[in-house]
């Protein structure tokens, strides 16, 4: 199974270039699409989910032309939108059953079994009779994944599913997702580096509509091995460091800024070498000036 995206571009009427000539090839498994808020991730996700038209470019899933054969794609699509709602006065079982019919599952018995299984899988069975309006953020998100999985989809798109979940809910949710990659192309869009690190075998970074990097997360980390240095500094000297070094990230640890910089050689000056992680790769792409080459 393969999803090929070729030269997708989309510019909104207010002049925002959401996507600039994005090309990607995505194979079976979990694919992480990483980018800051406003990078163009959701636009790309909506285009792939048949809900929006790009200005130019093509997207093909197996032999389905996504932009032309929308009905055909929808039969094999599972989509969890970034910001989705539910009918507040309806319970989970009813809405899931409704979506199941709309997705083409006509036999009542089969539908009932499937809805039950999905509610169990997403740990919502106990609350199946509760109105969706009363669901917490995490429960709603799990309901979202339940509806996305109904039609045994081969292309699963989840758009920022973990934003706003508490750590326990997030773990539960990631566990749910992790099973899906075996038999489908799963695209996980997120701005949370950890999500990608924990789940994805392949990833891409986009920012301001441009594809900055695509590859295996481990390879990406490998590519900056030995080039990331850290130092705990004083708040007042921060801007000084920013002008002198290629600072990719700054964090506070116990109130003190700790900066990571990218440098091919030892910068001295009290910097220590660190083992890079995916976050360094990500920030190096978004904020660093160094170009990373991943083969």
């Amino acid at each position: 199974m393969q999803l090929s995206i070729n030269n997708l571009s989309k510019t909104y009427s207010n002049g925002v270039e959401a996507l600039k000539n994005v090309s990607l090839t995505i194979k079976t498994g979990m694919f992480g699409l990483l980018g800051p808020n406003g990078a163009g991730k959701s636009t790309l996700m909506r285009i792939l989910a048949t809900l929006q038209e790009p200005d130019t470019g093509i997207a093909v899933f197996n032999d389905i032309n996504i932009l032309k054969e929308k009905d055909k794609l929808r039969k094999t699509l599972g989509y969890l939108p970034q910001e989705f709602g539910v009918y507040p006065k309806i319970n989970a079982e009813t809405l899931l059953n409704h979506v199941a019919v709309l997705k083409g599952i006509n036999k009542r018995g089969e539908r009932k079994e499937l809805v039950k299984a999905l509610l169990n899988k997403t740990n919502l069975y106990e609350q199946r009779k509760k109105n969706l309006g009363g669901y917490s953020g995490g429960m709603k998100q799990r309901f979202g994944i339940a509806q996305a999985l109904i039609a045994n989809p081969k292309l699963i798109i989840v758009d920022e599913p973990t934003a706003g979940l508490d750590p326990a809910e997030r773990n539960r949710f990631l566990n749910l997702l992790s099973e899906l990659g075996d038999h489908a192309v799963v695209i996980l869009s997120t701005h949370i580096v950890e999500d990608v690190k924990e789940l994805c075998t392949d990833m891409a970074v986009i920012n301001k509509g441009e594809l900055l990097l695509q590859g295996n997360p481990l390879d990406a980390i490998e590519s900056i091995q030995g080039r990331v240095w850290k130092k705990i500094i004083d708040k007042t000297t921060l801007s000084e460091y920013k002008t002198n070094f290629n600072v990719v990230s700054e964090k506070l640890i116990a109130g003190k800024p700790i900066i990571h910089i990218l440098s091919d050689t030892n910068p001295g000056d009290g910097f220590e070498s660190v083992t890079p992680d995916l976050e360094d790769v990500y920030f190096a792409q978004i904020f660093g000036s160094a170009e990373l080459a991943i083969t």
């Binding site: 048949t50 809900l51 929808r74 039969k75 699509l77 989509y79 709309l102 997705k103 979202g144 039609a151």
Partner: peptide, 8 residues
């Protein structure tokens, strides 16, 4: 988004 991506 949910309704429109079904097969309806």
């Amino acid at each position: 988004s949910i309704i429109f991506t079904t097969s309806t």
